[in-house]
């Protein structure tokens, strides 16, 4: 079966000094630019979709340089899942909070009129942008990458049932 189905059957990663060095230099800039774009999307072109995508792409870049398997272990599954799930939860939370304050879904100005937060509209939008969309997009980009990289292991190539149960134990640890 070789290295054809999934990383567990053989990693074809080859280390390259050039790519490693270049990524070490470029990745901080990419991450910074992604975060700048996310946080600064209110007043200049750009926003959370772009920023989230660039943050996600940074992780892809690291994965190419250091190998996908090590990156996946470094960035734990729970981190990615909480990014995506947390983003959706924040989005729903802000929306329901405005309903609880007596308005309609995402009626931000209630943060000012009811709670008295100055610039409540802007803070509400920033919460959605940074806490919601950027996290979701970054998390989903990483998820799709890792899922596609892991590929599909057909049942006939899956090893004996012991490995299956071992997998399950690892899962329950997470």
């Amino acid at each position: 079966m070789g290295g054809r189905y999934g990383g567990e059957h053989g990693d074809t990663y080859t280390e390259s000094q050039v790519i490693l060095t270049a990524v070490k230099i470029i990745a901080p800039f990419t991450l910074t630019y992604g975060m700048f774009m996310t946080l600064h999307g209110a007043d200049t072109p750009g926003g959370s979709f772009q920023g989230g995508a660039i943050i996600g792409v940074t992780v892809l870049m690291l994965a190419f340089a250091f190998g996908i398997e090590p990156t996946r272990q470094w960035l734990k599954n729970s981190v990615i899942v909480s990014m995506v799930g947390g983003g959706v939860a924040i989005f729903i939370g802000v929306g329901l909070a405005t309903i609880a304050l007596g308005g309609s879904f995402l009626e931000y100005r209630l943060f000012f009129t009811v709670l008295g937060i100055p610039d409540g509209t802007k803070w509400g939008m920033e919460a959605i942008e940074v806490g919601g969309i950027a996290l979701i997009v970054a998390g989903v980009v990483i998820t799709l990458f890792f899922a596609t990289a892991a590929g599909f292991t057909p049942a006939r190539y899956r090893s004996t049932p012991e490995v299956e149960t071992a997998d399950d134990e690892v899962l329950s640890d997470d």
């Binding site: 074809t12 990663y13 390259s16 790519i19 190419f64 340089a65 996908i68």
Partner: peptide
């Protein structure tokens, strides 16, 4: 560039 070049170095080298 690095994605495609890693792919061409070895088939599936991106993995």
């Amino acid at each position: 560039a690095i994605a495609i070049s890693k792919f061409t170095v070895e088939r599936g080298g991106v993995l």
